[in-house]
Structures are given as structure tokens and as C-alpha cells.
Nucleic acid binder design. Structure first.
Lengths: 299, 299
DNA sequence: GTTCCGCATGAATCGATAG
DNA sequence: ACTATCGATTCATGCGGAA
């Protein structure tokens, strides 16, 4: 099954739109990546959801998401509970438990380590420098393209490979109780290795919209749109989808996920309730599409 | 109130010993730091607790811990759920929720980012490089000595926490280890800032305990004790206790927490069930006590 | 005194096979 | 069907001794 339209953003409430089977048929989406609005105890907070009712509010949405996700698809939920009255809230923990009851498998919790976190000082805690990226699936056998997110091997390797001893060419079995064996020659001349489940993105690689092909070092972005923190959705889009797959963000915000999908030749679908965000997303996506078209014309 | 004895380790089951009010009176402990055995689906696993019964097993222990903790004390629980049948287990999430019902405040979740995690490759996940350090308290107003864990200003990318600093023990080691001596002197001269809630430790300061003692013949660590990863308990001991405070580890293992406490002039109390671990802890603590006594005699 | 090199090891996980 | 065992796979870093 396919969604009614691809490369489109809808303005509206995702809890209603997702339930529309003509727009979102069963098993039609390859990957869902989203950062929903965080809960907030304060009333009237901007698009805020009360933390006491967060789980209750989210479950009907995740129930639609599991319906429209393909069997080998993934759902990445980027979230972090705020402190409230000096304590961490528990709605994320409760949400994981409830989503499992809906049929989701909780495969993994990736840690997004944000080195330049929001400044501040409090008597009872330090600055919060990490967020959860919860990985849910419908089946235990899901699509994962690990080669797409390989990282350069550490500096140790270069020296190591220069001086290979005899033992490096045979399988070495560790003596302790672990069954770890190794054969260093397998890694000879290896350039890239698989990453781990703590995500650290370098700021220099950040992309500036309107200046998509350049890096932050280039200051020409000043005349263009705001900075896009594209790294996070990009990483998961590369890891859990392939070209032409359908990538959904039900809380699109200013369009980050859609832009990341577009840049990697995936089909985007976005939903956003707030008018300002929706317009900004529209503008941003449009700008990237223009740039990409211009670039492809050059070829 | 004070514990019956300080600077002592008990051999036995902490779920029984902690309930003994003569050993552990109400509100007698300043800080609890522990890494309990992680749950394991396999039967007959070494000191393993079945994951289905983990919460049930732990709650009576945490119930005693909240009794014996001082009102301004902290409890640091280092734990990480394993995957089982391809999914992350949920017992840690459930434990947090249940401990809150016991009266604990869940203040914070620190992320311990372990850069050299165990190698391996699987189709559904990457290497696990982080563990949870859950911070619980009895009151929202608790003792926190933030200045004790400031880190040097530096390149964000390379900033890490050095667990140990200017004390006699380090100076002693420095004699035997030129690398360490150099690093410590660099560290002492830098300006310091407050850290955040992602912990990344330098691993240079791991100690081969047997190597600390000056022996005429053999200085090879192979014939001595195991490596001590002291950084983690040390960081929390500095942050949540002051000199002469009572620091408890109900799952002492090979004595890491006690040694860290001792080195920072806190009073340690440890409990360990397994004979091998208990003996090793005893030996390790004894060795460090000897060194510290020798050093103080020199002054 | 400094750099280089060999080696050990770190709370691992999955899937296939055997009982 | 369910459980136990075993093989395969994989990086990064510190320490100690040698150069």
C-alpha cells in the first residue's frame, strides 16, 4: 500500500489526519521520525500537552502509527522528559510500557549526546545534555541499513596496521570467561567502522538551509534561513530507510525531517498543526527543492 | 544516627543485612552508590536475577535503603537493561515507577557514556555504549557539592571528567607512572566549569591496585589485582558527599565503591554476598589502607 | 626522558544447533 | 516448543617494557 500522496505536508491535527485511511492506508510508511511537543505542567503553554495526560494523549496517535507503518518499518521517537518540581517526569517511561501493550517492540534507546546544551545552573542538577531516541518496530525483523551510517575508524588503527604481528593473523581467543575472539587482520586497511548507540554530531557538519551543500564554516548562510539541526533525522533516515521510501513526521515543526528526507531522496510526508510552523516548513522545503532542482540541472 | 560500624564490609545478603536496625539505624547513611547485578533471562546464571522478577526482588532492598538514608542523602543506581529476544527489557523503567511509589524522588538520570564499549555486530542494533545512573533522593532538598566535580575548560569535543585529583594517593602513583603524573599536572592548572549530565571519563586513571604497592621483585600487574574502574563511584562520591560522610554500597563486588570512598576520606560500608568477591574486596581495601597509612606517616 | 609497540580486555548479542 | 550451548562478529584504549 502507498499513501495517497507523497512529498506533501498537511496542516492539521495528526491525531485526526492519521486516522484517515484514504490518506494513510495500512502498512504504507517505511519510517517515522518525530520529536513531539514535550509535556509541560504550565497551562496555556505553547502547543503544550499536560504531562499528566501525555500518555493518554499520545497513545491514539501511536496506535495509528503502528497501523500505517510497513512491517519492516521503524518508528524513531525523539523525546526527553523535563524536570518538574525538581524531579524528572515519568511520562516517557509510562509511554514505552503502554506502547508495548499496543504491539510495538521497543528495540533500542539511542542516546543523543548534545555537547553544546542549553546553558544554565541549578542547585539540584547539571545541564541536560542528552535526549532519548526511542526505536520502536512492528516486527523483530526490520530493515536496517547499517553500512549507511559507518564512521571513520579511530586513529589507533593507522599505527596498528603498520605493525602487524604474527598473532594478529590468527584468531585469538580471549582467556577470560568472555568468548571474545579477534583476528586483527580482518580489519587491515579498514577505513570505516560501525557506530554505537550514543549519537554525537559535530557542529561543523551542520547544514544551513539555502546553503545546503556547504558547511557551517561558510558564513554565507547568514542571508538564508535559520540553522537546521538536520543531523539527527538524517542519521535515522539513512539507517532505517532507502531511496524513495516514505518518511513521515507527524509533528513536523519547521520541516527538518522533511528536508532531511528530501536531501536523501526519500519521499516525505509531514503533518503540522500550528500555522506559523506549517508556513515555515512549506517555505523551507520549497527552498530546498529549488536548490536540488538547480543542482540536478547542472548535471 | 550513625551506622553501628564504619569502614567495614559485611559478607551476606543485603536484603537481610540492611533490615537489621542495629547495623543500619534510620537516617544513618549519607550516600548510596551501587551497581546491582543486572537481570538475566538465563537460569542458573552467575548471581543472576530473572528479569521477570527483578523489580519484585529489588523493591524490598530499596525500601530499606530509603529507611537508612539521611534526609539530605542521595542514592545512585547504576544499571542498564540488556536486550532479550531482540528487545530491550523494561524492568528498569518499571523499577523507577515503583520506587517512586515507595517515596523516592527520581531527580535525574545521568548518562554514563562508555567510549570503549564491547565490540560486536548484529543485524538489529549497534554496540551499547551507555549506562543509566539514576539519581534518587528522599527529599527535594538534598546535599550536592557541585564545585567538587568541576572540569577543566577545553575543547568540548575532548572534554572528559578526571575522577581523581590532587591527593596523596595520586602523587604516589605518579611516581610509578610518568604518563599519569603529566596528566595530573596539566589538569591542575586549568580553569574549571560545571559539567553536565553526560559522564565521559578519562580511562588513564584506572589503577592496577597491586601495582600501587612498591614491591622489590615484580611490578607486573598480571600478578596482582584486577583493574579498578574507580571513576564512576568517585564522581558521585565527590558530588553527593563530603569528608567523613558514610558511603554505602550494598552490592560491593570487588570493592570499587569502598576504595573510592576511602581515597576521598569518606567512611565506607559495603555488603557482598559472594565469597570470591568479598575476599577480593577485603584484599583491595586493605591494600589501599596500607598505602594511605604509609603516605600519612610520611607527612 | 620520550615514543613506540605488543598485548590484554571490556556487565555483548545473535542465530544456529543440539538436547 | 523450549532451553542451553557454541561460534561468529566486532573496536578502542591503557599499561608496561623496549627502543
Amino acid at each position: 500500500m502507498k499513501p495517497k500522496e507523497l512529498n506533501i505536508i498537511y496542516k492539521g491535527d495528526c491525531s485526526i489526519l492519521l486516522a484517515d485511511k484514504s490518506l494513510f492506508p495500512d502498512k504504507s510508511i517505511n519510517l517515522i521520525v518525530t520529536s513531539p511537543p514535550y509535556a509541560d505542567k504550565r497551562k496555556n503553554s505553547y502547543q503544550g500537552v499536560n504531562s499528566d495526560k501525555y500518555v493518554e494523549w499520545f497513545l491514539p496517535i501511536s496506535d495509528q502509527l503502528i497501523r500505517i507503518l510497513k512491517d519492516n518499518g521503524s518508528f524513531i521517537l525523539n523525546i526527553k522528559e523535563h524536570p518538574s518540581n525538581g524531579e524528572r517526569e515519568t511520562y516517557v517511561l509510562e509511554l514505552i510500557l503502554e506502547m508495548k501493550k499496543q504491539g510495538w517492540f521497543w528495540i533500542e534507546e539511542y542516546c543523543w549526546y548534545k555537547k553544546n546544551s542549553f546553558p544554565g545552573k541549578w542547585p539540584n542538577r547539571f545541564r541536560d545534555s542528552w535526549e532519548r531516541c526511542l526505536h520502536f518496530t512492528k516486527k523483530k525483523d526490520f530493515a536496517m541499513y547499517q553500512d549507511a551510517v559507518k564512521v571513520p575508524i579511530g586513529d589507533w588503527a593507522e599505527k596498528r596496521f603498520k605493525s602487524m604481528s604474527e598473532n594478529d593473523f590468527i584468531r585469538h581467543i580471549s582467556k577470560n570467561n568472555t568468548h571474545l575472539g579477534r583476528n586483527v587482520s580482518n580489519w587491515l586497511n579498514k577505513k570505516k567502522v560501525y557506530p554505537h548507540n550514543v549519537l554525537v554530531f559535530e557542529e561543523e557538519h551542520r547544514l544551513y538551509l539555502g546553503n545546503v551543500v556547504e558547511t557551517a564554516a561558510d558564513t554565507s548562510h547568514k542571508n538564508h534561513s535559520a540553522i537546521f539541526p538536520l543531523e539527527l533525522p538524517t542519521w535515522f533516515i539513512r539507517l532505517f530507510s532507502k531511496e524513495n521510501d516514505a518518511v513521515l513526521d507527524p509533528f513536523l515543526g519547521s520541516g527538518t525531517t522533511a528536508v532531511a528526507a528530501l536531501l536523501h531522496k526519500r519521499k516525505y510526508i509531514g503533518i503540522e498543526l500550528k500555522t506559523e510552523y506549517f508556513s515555515e516548513a512549506q517555505k523551507n522545503i520549497c527552498e530546498v527543492e529549488k536548490i536540488m532542482k538547480k543542482n540536478s540541472n547542472k548535471i
